[in-house]
Design a protein around this nucleic acid. Structure first.
Lengths: 338, 338
DNA sequence: AATCAGTTCCAAAACGTTTTGGGGGATAAT
DNA sequence: ATTATCCCCCAAAACGTTTTGGAACTGATT
């Protein structure tokens, strides 16, 4: 509650001197500086970031804008792990972090620019937004530097961080092909996600490379949801019993798919090999444990923050970064013997 | 970037009028109000919360201070789900949320009061802090209203939200006793956590109620960590092979315990019944799936925020809340047949 | 004695809002 | 014609900082 004025009064100096003393300027006598410092401590004084930001026109604050911060997110932990990465990087570099969460309802009440202007964030990291989201256009038009997570759009002030989705998917599907599977289906996420399109492309590339014809009936939309994936998998496997392998665009959907297969009386992985995408915690604990493509969500957040802060500090910088994925072999995939 | 001054100039009125028009005061002509509103929109104006907060001496901001925001947290999702609850409640009530994360290192650099003063948070929700944490004393001495999660301390400005840990533990252990188990051990968390002490008390109460003598050698410290729990369980079961049931103070430790038992060649739940605490996502997916005590972490955060905001608005309010837990029966527990 | 350089300090302006305490004009009441 | 009441508007102060552009002093150099 003590202000700089209180410190100045008690120290018998001017407000200016207190400010300069505390901020390490050289034009203040070491003796007075020490005196001011101890008095500041006595009074439990700490400068108001509000007032400072106002006059300096700098907040040293970045916003993590997440669309759809919901408890369901705890199943894949995407948001949480990105948040950890952002938080750690921001902390290291001395930036404050404000969490801004929106949904379609809120987006109509307040524009992206309003949100950012009000809180005077210097830059933004955007997570969870869909390609058809109204905010996305605004972001591109806005002056405020922004890093998108998993949406590869770039402009003067906008960059992105993503993983090698196509490559990851390709590895996954080639793994299945190498195990002798010929009828490999795919449970994809919704098409408003960039990653869905990329992973589909990877799936197709792998098939082509392995000389397996692409059949669009083998690709269904699981909407990134466990339940939808379960439902779609049941339909798929009923209609096309020749399918022996499944590539799922997310581990969560793989969980749903495996449950569907089990309910149909299939023994996993004997009757059906499944590979997922994400490497969420669950995938190591399920039965069978899930072979998957690992992507480093923490690093996604960390790198996004690194790029953003460099942008903010006016440095020349590559405005995008594509992280590598890693294939993790577990129990859910095995040789085809049909 | 447009300021209130820009709007005033363009509208040909004073700054005062713009402020009052936009804030819905009645002493401004509806026509001018409309004019100002459209001009504000044209200029993409939104008031700076910085400036507003400075003059109003109110920030409408609460801080979620979490100690140890680490990626390991994604295994139990405690922090994330509390965060979701806090975020939703704060959002509904028009409060901004800043995320403040500390660790023991940071706590030495900056005091709790400095942290709060700098950012001018009106109130704080504290999560993940230990009972021997230096911040805890500060919180009690501080003027700033604060709600503790899972630490039952109350004062003029401090309240808390927790779950019925003793009751939950008791239910869990009684469940095991009712299944005919006589030798029930406990894997507890570290003793700096209040919940550990409560859950231990519940364990003891249940034993007493069921006429089973308490043996302190049956209680080991798993430090809330999966690996430690695994290690301790191995030691425990080797030394006391008569044990047929385990109550674990967290699901994560139960995972470790189950793995230990499996590695020793035990078949679960036939040779060992296990009940956990928390109802984390994993517990539904493990094999066997885990019987557990469910606690609503989202609600923990939501209620904490409710109480905090009421405190901030000067309302008379019960400064603590104890949420009920629920027992969830799954596959990891069965009748004792030894 | 006058100039210069260096050291240590300070008054005032600025940042973008809200609030206070009125001012002026129009209309109605005396 | 004066007074009272509204209605609509505004100038200025305040919030707590940082920064700018000197001022006042002390020694040293001319």
């Amino acid at each position: 509650m003590a202000t700089i004025r209180d410190v100045a009064k008690k120290a018998g100096v001017s407000v200016t001197t207190v400010s300069r003393a505390l901020n390490g300027y050289s034009d203040v006598n070491e003796k007075t500086r020490e005196k001011i410092k101890t008095i500041a401590q006595e009074l439990n004084y700490s400068p108001s970031l509000l007032a400072r930001s106002l006059v300096m026109k700098k907040t040293k604050t970045i916003g993590l804008l997440v669309s759809g911060l919901r408890i369901e997110g705890s199943k894949d932990n995407f948001t949480f792990e990105v948040l950890c990465g952002v938080n750690d990087c921001a902390g290291e570099l001395g930036y404050e972090l404000v969490l801004i969460s929106t949904d379609s309802k809120k987006q109509q009440e307040k524009t992206y620019n309003q949100l950012c202007n009000e809180r005077k964030v210097e830059g933004v990291i955007l997570q969870g937004i869909k390609t058809d989201d109204p905010y996305l256009d605004e972001v591109l038009k806005s002056e405020i530097p922004c890093i998108l997570i998993d949406i590869p759009i770039e402009s003067e002030s906008v960059g992105y961080v993503t993983t090698d989705n196509k490559g990851g998917a390709q590895t996954a599907v080639e793994h299945l092909a190498d195990l002798g599977h010929k009828n490999i289906a795919m449970i994809n996420g919704h098409s408003q996600a960039f990653v869905s399109r990329e992973r589909l492309a990877g799936y197709q590339d792998a098939l082509q490379k392995k000389g397996i014809p692409f059949d669009e009936d083998y690709v269904v939309n699981g909407a990134f949801l466990e339940e939808t994936a379960e439902l779609e998998t049941t339909k798929l496997l009923t209609k096309y019993p020749e399918i022996t392998a499944l590539f799922c665009a997310s581990d969560l959907m793989a969980m749903g798919a495996m449950r569907a297969a089990k309910k149909m009386g299939k023994i996993l992985p004997r009757d059906l090999s499944v590979v997922g995408y994400d490497n969420i915690i669950l995938s190591a604990y399920s039965t069978p444990s899930l072979s998957t493509i690992a992507q480093d969500r923490y690093k996604l957040g960390f790198e996004a923050t690194t790029i953003l802060t460099q942008l903010l500090e006016g440095r020349e910088v590559e405005k995008n970064k594509v992280l590598q994925t890693a294939f993790i072999k577990r129990e859910s995939t095995m040789k085809n013997h049909k």
